[in-house]
C-alpha cells in the first residue's frame, strides 16, 4: 500500500506545526516525511524522492527555505518537483517575483500560516491526484 501513496516532504522548524499538518495529510492518504531545517530537508528529499515538497521560509534566523528551494532545483531528479511554500511572512501574495531564474517554477504555490487545510489539500490533490488511502476507506488511521 505504501508504494502507491504519494510522498510529501515537509520542511518546517516548528515541530508542532509539522505534527499537525502531517496528521492531516496522513489522514488523507499521503506519506509524509519531515525535516526541521533547509539542509536536512534537501537531504531527505534526495533520499525520499517526494512528489511534492512543503517548505517553510524562516527557519532559524534567516530565510533558509529560499536557499533550500534553490538547492532542490540544482539536484538531479528534483529540478521539477513542485514546491509549496508555507510561511507566516506573507500576508497574501509574496512580494517578490516568482520567476524560473530564481528557482521558482510555474507550478509552485504559496500559502500563508496558519495554513488553510482544505485549500492546501485541494491544491495538492490537483497537482498529485489524491492520496492512496482516502478518508472514507481508512477512517481514523492517523499517526
Amino acid at each position: 500500500m505504501s508504494s502507491e501513496r504519494k510522498r510529501i516532504v515537509l520542511v518546517d522548524d516548528d515541530d508542532d506545526f509539522a505534527a499537525a499538518v502531517t496528521a492531516f495529510l496522513e489522514l488523507h492518504g499521503f506519506e509524509v516525511h519531515r525535516a526541521a531545517d533547509g539542509r536536512s530537508g534537501v537531504t531527505l528529499a534526495k533520499m525520499v524522492r517526494p512528489d511534492l515538497v512543503l517548505m517553510d521560509v524562516i527557519m532559524g534566523e534567516r530565510t533558509e527555505g529560499f536557499f533550500a528551494v534553490q538547492n532542490l532545483r540544482r539536484t538531479p531528479g528534483l529540478e521539477q518537483v513542485p514546491v509549496f511554500v508555507i510561511s507566516s511572512v506573507y500576508s497574501a501574495e509574496p512580494q517578490f517575483k516568482v520567476t524560473p531564474e530564481r528557482g521558482w517554477l510555474a507550478h509552485d504555490e504559496f500559502f500563508q500560516k496558519p495554513v488553510d487545510l482544505p485549500a492546501l489539500l485541494k491544491s495538492i490533490t490537483a497537482r498529485l491526484g489524491g492520496g492512496e488511502g482516502a478518508l472514507a476507506t481508512n477512517p481514523g488511521t492517523i499517526k
Partner: peptide
C-alpha cells in the same frame, strides 16, 4: 518583522492543531 514572526509562530502551531482536530474523525486515535 522578526518580532511579529516570533509571536506568530506559537499562535500558528496552536491554530493548526485546533484546525486538524476539527477535521479528525472520531476514534481511539483521535
Amino acid at each position: 518583522t522578526f518580532v511579529s514572526h516570533q509571536l506568530r509562530t506559537p499562535l500558528v502551531a496552536v491554530h493548526q492543531y485546533l484546525d486538524v482536530l476539527k477535521h479528525l474523525p472520531e476514534g481511539p486515535d483521535a
